[in-house]
Design a protein around this nucleic acid. Structure first.
Length: 592
RNA sequence: GGCCCGGUAGCUCAGCUGAAUAGAGCACAAACCUUCUAAGUUUGGGGUCAUUGGUUUGAAUCCAAUCCGGGUCACCA
């Protein structure tokens, strides 16, 4: 139990004792005391003033005296400034806390709670390689899954691969037209990049044809439909749906190239999935919903045979769920997939990591399932994240103006190597140890960069400014961890006996206070589905340790007792850093 | 146009379930390595919290309106 949740009932009880009034724990505002004031935690008094009819000062003094008297094991002192009651928590309390947790590498984790959550993330298209936006999605999804796991949830990570459709056919047509039988092997190109090149080639050719038609006097809209390459693509989609063997063969061949490429990238960034869904297998079953919805009267059929749902009561529009030709649309597929997932896993909650451009779509999806009375509908949660943009605007695969994921990672590895070589601290590392270290640092920097901001906010990435290794960054925290490990290596075992140290120094105490908050931070991150909460916390913890580190020596402490205390502090800080970074999918090195 | 999201230091962002003088990082200026890793630490300048009004003992935070930016409202996915 955290100190704050331990203190709250005590305060409620004292308020009752002193004034005979009942307050709820939720009504209490308790913050860490600002550094410029004396104390550890602060109770804000204003909210009681009205009911109790005493001045904040008097109220604070009475409460302070009562709390210190009733709980001398927790509170040792207090002061009241304006409407704030600053409470000093006893050093003994902090010693006991440190004592019982410093060696626990799973501090802050919770036991299994029996709830099952499926987290869908990544969800790539098989016509182009992953870019920076996909990385944000992948890191977010993986991290949220990991954070939920730490809180005791049973997690299934899933991925829906958009492996069919007109966009896939575009790459296929372009390959037929321009490749002359070239393959990833023959061109020594990573499979996903290879296919992505043809997607760009398609769009170049298409654009050119449209321009020519427009120059010949055709209207733009018409030209876009009439361009020969587009007509061929539509024919191919039709052939694909009919299962034409040579089209299916090409489709499989090119998708496999892409999967080979994706596998390499996923492995590199640490994305993994318990369950893969493929749109080519799930795009049809959604149609069952249409009959069901019609029978229930949730859907209605228009004269042309198309099927709709009326959401005007909810402030939305009418939404199409089945085309007049009987083929399914995007939302139909998603209805089918939601059902499929529930049948497969019987989940309590289903999280979708999808960019904010699909907010409306996800709202509609959930609403339809609710109207259909599906038991799993309320458990659907859209984890919204903002798009990653360039200073010049949105990234567009079609136009090739994207920051490629693989290239980005390679650049970060390069920077990591250069910086490491400049500093020359790991000259005794083997080649493979160095390679691993560069990977740890490069991906640490990249993941931290993308996870440290609130997922909901869109972010602008400037490729000209490479990601920093100083300040609020992954490497800064990794470095702090390596420093601590360097100290701990000098000591065979950290003693765990009760220490007779009589007082905590300011920097020691603020470190302990920070460590104590870790479990509450994880809870907050879960509640908000927000890894940036962890990133910010771990950064502040690392900063706090660094300040402590420069001010006080561990190995040459004033006394043996102090040395042991600081070793425990160091060990616990290392554990929390490693644990918190682990929740972000970031590894921490022993040395760097 | 309807709906949704955002606007905080030169830049990137915290703070947004109201609470003490609005915080970090980067950049800029300076100081600190015979002492546990200087990828570090310390100090400094830098703000009309988009604007206006309202609620409140108290507003960056809540409410309303306005301005600016983005998304979405497809028989695309």
């Amino acid at each position: 139990m955290s100190i704050v949740s331990e203190i709250k009932p005590l305060i409620v009880k004292e308020l009752k004792n002193l004034y005979g009034m009942d307050f709820l724990e939720e009504d209490l505002t308790i913050n860490t005391t600002k550094p410029e004031f004396e104390g550890d935690y602060t109770l804000v008094l204003f909210s009681f003033v009205k009911k109790i009819k005493k001045s904040p000062e008097q109220l604070g003094i009475e409460m302070g005296e009562a709390l210190v008297k009733a709980h001398p094991d927790i509170f040792t002192a207090f002061n009241v400034i304006k409407g704030f009651l600053n409470l000093t928590v006893s050093d003994t309390y902090w010693f006991n806390f440190l004592q019982s947790h410093f060696s626990d590498s799973r501090f802050g984790h919770k036991p299994a709670n029996g709830k099952k959550v499926i987290v869908e993330y990544s969800s790539p298209n098989t016509n182009k390689p992953l870019h920076l936006g996909h990385l944000r999605n992948n890191f977010l999804g993986w991290s949220v899954a990991q954070i939920l796991k730490a809180c005791g949830y049973d997690i299934i990570k899933s991925c829906i691969v958009n492996d069919r459709g007109i966009h896939i056919c575009k790459s296929m047509i372009a390959w037929q037209l321009f490749a002359n039988g070239a393959t990833p092997q023959s061109t020594h190109t990573k499979g996903d990049h290879f296919v992505g090149e043809y997607y760009v080639k398609f769009n170049d050719a298409y654009k050119k044809q449209v321009e020519e038609l427009v120059a010949g006097g055709m209207k733009k809209e018409e030209a876009e439909k009439d361009a020969p390459i587009m007509k061929r693509t539509q024919q191919m989609l039709f052939d694909w749906e009919a299962g034409k063997p040579e089209v299916m063969e090409l489709w499989k061949k090119m998708n496999n190239w892409v999967y080979e490429g994706f596998d390499v990238t996923y492995k590199r960034i640490g994305s993994d999935f318990e369950k893969m869904y493929y749109e080519s297998e799930t795009y049809l079953p959604g149609k069952k919903f249409v009959d069901e919805g019609l029978k229930q009267g949730v859907f209605f059929k228009k004269e042309d045979g198309s099927v709709w749902i009326d959401l005007t009561d909810e402030g939305l529009d009418e939404k199409l769920v089945l085309r007049k030709d009987g083929t399914s649309v995007y939302i139909t597929q998603d209805l089918g997939l939601a059902q499929q997932k529930y049948e497969d896993f019987n989940y309590d909650q289903s999280i979708y990591v999808i960019a904010d451009e699909q907010n409306y779509h996800m709202k509609v999806l959930k609403l339809i399932l609710q109207k259909l009375g599906k038991p799993y509908a309320d458990g659907i949660f859209h984890l919204i994240y903002g798009m990653v943009e360039l200073p010049s605007g949105r990234m567009k695969s079609r136009e090739g103006t994207v920051v490629d994921a693989d290239e980005m990672i390679e650049e970060m590895v390069d920077v990591a190597r250069k910086k490491t070589e400049e500093l020359g601290k790991v000259k005794d590392f083997t080649e493979s140890e160095l390679k691993e270290l560069y990977d740890i640092i490069a991906l640490g920097a990249l993941k931290f960069f993308l996870l440290r901001v609130d997922p909901k906010k869109r972010m602008i990435f400037n490729p000209e400014e490479s990601i920093d290794f100083h300040g609020f960054t992954g490497p800064f925290i990794q470095y702090t961890h390596a420093r601590i490990k360097s100290i701990l290596r000098k000591q065979s075992a950290v003693g765990s006996r009760q220490l007779a140290v009589n007082c905590l120094l300011k920097l020691e105490k603020s470190l302990i206070i920070a460590l104590e908050q870790y479990p509450a931070i994880i809870e907050q991150a879960v509640a908000e589905h927000n890894p940036s909460v962890i990133a910010i916390y771990i950064f502040n913890l690392a900063k706090s340790f660094n300040t402590f580190y420069t001010e006080h020596s561990v190995m040459n402490a004033e006394s043996e007792e102090k040395k042991q205390l600081r070793l425990q502090l160091s060990e616990m800080t290392a554990h929390v850093i490693a644990s918190g970074m682990g929740l972000l999918g970031i590894r921490v090195p022993e040395r760097m």
